[in-house]
Design a binder for these strands. Structure first.
Lengths: 162, 162
DNA sequence: TATTGTTATACTCTATAACTATA
DNA sequence: TATAGTTATAGAGTATAACAATA
């Protein structure tokens, strides 16, 4: 079977099921976050990253990891969060080039407000239908796939795009 | 364990792994489609739906299913595809309200051009790391989740939004 | 010279509502 | 009156490149 042969039915089923499950889940999550806390998924991820960081603060560069594809995109989102009073931005003390982002009390409150409902959505849509070993199995397979993805960049990969 | 209790570590791992796998795959797919055929994922899905439809044609309403969230969004995308000569739109013969969309030869050619690379991306990123029963297992679990998602709409669900 | 982050800009996409036309 | 689809419009988000400041 060559690299470019058509996908067989079983492969198509896996591919489509993965995509649809993920898209439906993301859509439900976005709707909830917006109605429950006026947040987008990206903003929620930013707040959660800060929430889990020591002192509730991170530099822009660290914050960008895995959340956003361009630096200006993060600046834009951080601007919205700052305007909403959920984060603050100050120059990094030991590196004047940097910006240190800190979650505010209001930011922590907002995540606390939103989190229970967020968890409920994930439970209802993704976790509840899992039975027996499903959770462990799913995690095992997806973790292996993720590892492969991270180490197998696109063939044509232009290394730096920014 | 209540509905809104925090997710435990195993649940978080599954949730995050699913999201990251899906996001990385979608990103790789979008990049490929754009560079290989100047198509977005949505446009590709539209062309593939038409390609698999009898006579290469569908009505707008049927085309929208599962691809787009608003009717105007489909009109917009169809407009782009028509301008690129990949589809045509004519009034539906037996229902003058409707629009029948037909894929052109150029549209079929474009999908044929893009498909091998698309398959290669899915193989490289998603399928290749699967071994043994992984494919069957993954499909089984995800299919069950999908079924649940389709039948368990959001609590607050506003039925019609358009 | 490289890195951090912001800004300016242009573009793509989305969604709502108003509208036309047909069933 | 309901349905199919388009259009107008406005807003949100993204990415590129140019920029300023610091390392």
């Amino acid at each position: 079977m060559s690299e470019t042969a058509d996908l067989d039915a079983a492969e198509l089923n896996a591919y489509f099921a993965l995509m649809e499950v993920c898209n439906l889940l993301e859509h439900a999550i976005e709707q909830h976050l917006r109605s429950a806390g006026d947040l987008t998924s990206i903003q929620f991820k930013i707040l959660m990253s800060l929430n889990n960081a020591p002192g509730g603060q991170l530099r822009m560069t660290d914050l960008a990891d895995g959340i956003v594809h361009s630096r200006s995109g993060l600046t834009y989102q951080a601007g919205l969060l700052a305007k909403a009073g959920l984060i603050t931005r100050v120059p990094t003390p030991d590196d004047e080039r940097g910006t240190t982002v800190t979650i505010t009390d209001a930011g922590r409150q907002r995540t606390a407000d939103v989190l229970p409902g967020h968890v409920a959505v994930v439970r209802r849509m993704l976790l509840n239908p899992l039975v027996g070993d499903d959770l462990a199995t799913l995690t095992d397979v997806l973790t292996r796939v993720r590892t492969q993805m991270r180490t197998a960049p696109p063939r044509s990969a232009a290394r730096r795009k920014d």
